[in-house]
Amino acid sequence: MNAPERNPRRAFIAAAGAGVAGLGFTAIAPGLHLMAVGEANAAARPAGTAASPAVRWGLLIDATKCAPGCTKCIDACHEENGVSEQLPDPRQNSQWIRKIELVDRRNGRVTTLPMMCQHCATPPCVDVCPTGASMKRADGIVLVDRHTCIGCRYCMMACPYKARSFVHTNLSEQNPEVPRGKGCVESCTLCVHRVDKGQQPACVEKCPEGAMTFGDLNDPTSAIAKRIASVPTTQVRGDLRLDLGVRYQGI
């Protein structure tokens, strides 16, 4: 496997950002500021070190920017994670991310948004899993251990977001970094294999509208935390009080 390439533009932005630590932006001309909006992540997590509980990875989705009919995030997710099976019954295909169209019953306003695992702080799927295969990493990413999942699908019954899928058939053409397997349950991993390399999730990177922001919710200087602090955002089914890692703007 190729070593992850350094992105010079991101490195420059990071350096620029570091140079103005505490300010979060730099003045490049009067009235014009270069903001570190692309700041993805903290540094890559070195192999062999545990995920940090000081970090809470999250995603902010601006539904006002999400274009109807656009499936770029889905395509990117499927390509990145090797989700390629096309079964005769589409309901048996894995659904890591899907587009939902919402029509407000009161005024008919139409919104579209991507829906995926919401990476709850108190995930029902983790509570109900009999073997502990459903787990939440210290940095808030909810995953399935494919070695201990027995395929009971109880987590799918428990998930309030229909975010989990059961692999119904034999798989081929898998991405070696994203092991999947027949008979196990799976869901969005926030592209954990990319995040651990200091990259962004594939859907975030490929969204042409810039509707998705990824980052550390616990870091008040991160773009996502600043945005959540400055605009109204929503947790889907907030009444369940699951403290979601994925937030929406504009619904």
């Binding site: 009999p130 073997t131 070695h147 027995i150 395929g151 027949k182 008979g183 196990c184």
Partner: peptide, 24 residues
């Protein structure tokens, strides 16, 4: 089960918050 061959996993990995786990 999707992985009926993992009966031993079910028997040896126990999640106390799971009702399924209690049933094991």
């Amino acid at each position: 089960l999707g992985r009926a061959d993992r009966l031993m996993v079910a028997a040896t990995h126990f999640n106390p918050t799971s009702v399924f786990g209690w049933n094991v």
